[in-house]
């Protein structure tokens, strides 16, 4: 219950923050501007619009997750708003999860608004926003939740700037973990190969959430793959959040 109170308050804070509207405006501009790129590729405009709008959801969502998420706990400590909250009969993990869920709600709203606007725009252009398109949006949202969990973990340990750099690096690496496995034959049996393979499994593989190309090209999506990606994101986020709670539990504020 207290988790929900903190979550709703975090959501309210973000909604009352004008920065969110600026970001959302940029995102929607990018969605509507995708037609311009569609013009360049003759006959491919619907495909390009789908691809570009999904990419916009991913990038702008990640920006919100990183910049809002990495200041989520830090700001509470820095501005001392935490004093009167943690002195209530509530557990610290309730507070951490509440903050996480609050930002999760906000990202859900952002992705939903962008998906609906993009869907309507596709209809106007004569395209069809099918189930694959919305499944792709759902996986993007799940990826953002995973990125948010890292942001929350960092926000309990580091300044927002440092946290944002680290999470941004994770976001970039997370989309390219395949390179750790894709090594030339001369690496076989070396320590480097073992190390890079270890990194492959340790880093979150954000590529697992990327079905943008399939959605844009109308390739059928296997439901079991979507379930796998959702389960992967849920378990990974849960593990990172446990670490965030552990880091925050004994922190002196």
């Amino acid at each position: 219950m207290r988790i929900w109170i903190v979550a709703l308050n975090t959501f309210r804070e973000s909604v009352r923050d004008k920065v969110l509207y600026v970001l959302l405006l940029f995102a929607l501009t990018a969605v509507l501007g995708s037609k311009a790129i569609g013009w360049i590729s003759i006959g491919q405009d619907i495909k390009i619009v789908k691809d570009f709008t999904l990419a916009s959801m991913s990038v702008f969502g990640a920006l919100i997750a990183i910049f809002v998420g990495t200041s989520l706990l830090y700001k509470e400590i820095d501005k001392r708003t935490l004093y009167t909250i943690l002195s209530q009969p509530m557990r610290r993990w309730e507070f951490v999860l509440g903050k996480y869920l609050g930002l999760g709600l906000l990202l859900g709203l952002v992705v939903l608004v962008m998906a609906l606007v993009s869907g309507l725009y596709l209809l106007v252009l004569g395209g069809k926003p099918d189930a694959a398109y919305f499944l792709a949006a759902l996986l993007i949202y799940w990826k953002l939740l995973l990125v948010t969990s890292f942001a929350v973990l960092l926000s309990s340990m580091a300044s927002p700037i440092l946290g944002a750099i680290v999470v941004f690096a994770l976001y970039v690496f997370g989309h390219a973990t395949g390179v750790f496995l894709d090594l030339p034959a001369q690496f076989d049996g070396t320590f480097s190969k073992t190390l890079l393979e270890g990194l492959y499994y340790a880093f979150p593989n954000l590529g697992n959430f990327d079905i943008r190309a399939e959605a844009a090209n109308g390739v059928p999506i296997n439901p079991s793959y979507v379930l796998f990606a959702l389960a992967y994101g849920t378990l990974y986020s849960a593990a990172v959040l446990i670490a965030a709670v552990w880091a925050f539990e004994n922190k002196d504020v």
């Binding site: 309210r12 004093y83 009167t84």
Partner: peptide, 29 residues
């Protein structure tokens, strides 16, 4: 802390809330 009321040296609250919303928020907590 169920029976405790605490006033910090420099109390800070969520600036985007009104006093009524602040009292409501802590009441919920």
């Amino acid at each position: 802390r169920a029976k405790l009321g605490y006033l910090p040296e420099q109390p800070y609250f969520y600036e985007y809330l009104t006093p009524r919303e602040t009292i409501e928020f802590y009441g919920r907590l």
